[in-house]
Amino acid sequence: MTSRPELQAPPEIFYNDAEARKYTSSSRIIEIQAKITDRALELLALPDDGVPRLLLDIGCGSGLSGETLSEHGHQWIGLDISQSMLNVALERETDGDLLLGDMGQGLGIRPGVVDGAISISAVQWLCNADKSSHNPRLRLKAFFESLYKCLARGARAVLQVYPENVHQRELILGFAMRAGFAGGVVVDYPHSARSRKEYLVLTCGPPSISATVPKGKDGDYESCSDDDIAEDDENQTVRMAAPRKRQKITKRGKGREWVLKKKEQMRRKGNIVPPDSKYTARKRKARF
């Protein structure tokens, strides 16, 4: 059996009553969740004026991450797809409000009202198609677009994710970028297989000085790491380019250069592409 819950069942089924209880009664998981949330809050870089903010917790589950938010005095709204997890959250009497919803359907929050969003180990679920009607690309698009809309200008979203592979990371980042976010990935403890944590730090609005990506943590692993592959090396911060400009389309089409570039891209991906010749991207005669 694989150790990735994403590959076993859809989230609303995987996190059933038994799993939800197991998840929330493990002191190890509680501690790790609290640590990740603390780190996410740090990366969120809210102004340090002691004013409580309205935060969004996407995939709040049983409210473990929300508890850390409450400890910092913030008001939060949590969204999760698993009724069982939310039931546990109710039992724990979390301070935030809970919503039963699917982030892949969009968040359904009014534009520009949220001061920040965090998500702990949830967004990678969007990469799976659990129903025939699910299209991961459309769901990621809906999620990031609605997230971008509901955040206030200049607000940040910090999403801790466990992408399964490079493709998933690129997919998630790509859709974040297309929705208009600036930012990048912060990797904590890049050399440790277990305590390695990836955070997408996304800023709403045009890239500016405040949109610089913070550094990942390295060095002494905290108690959430159990392995010994400790190497002291450079931190790893993957930068994401600013949102792309729209390609201009003139009357004469996109031009030969553009076609050649695209063909080259396809070749690099390993697709079968016809060879370039003098006929490439040449216009047909008016009468065909």
Binding site: L54, D97, L98, L99, Q105, G108, I109, R110, C150
Partner: peptide, 13 residues
């Protein structure tokens, strides 16, 4: 659900 949340929610259909 508090009215704070109600004031933020909109229908997503």
């Amino acid at each position: 659900m508090r009215l704070l949340t109600h004031n933020m929610l909109s229908s997503n259909i």
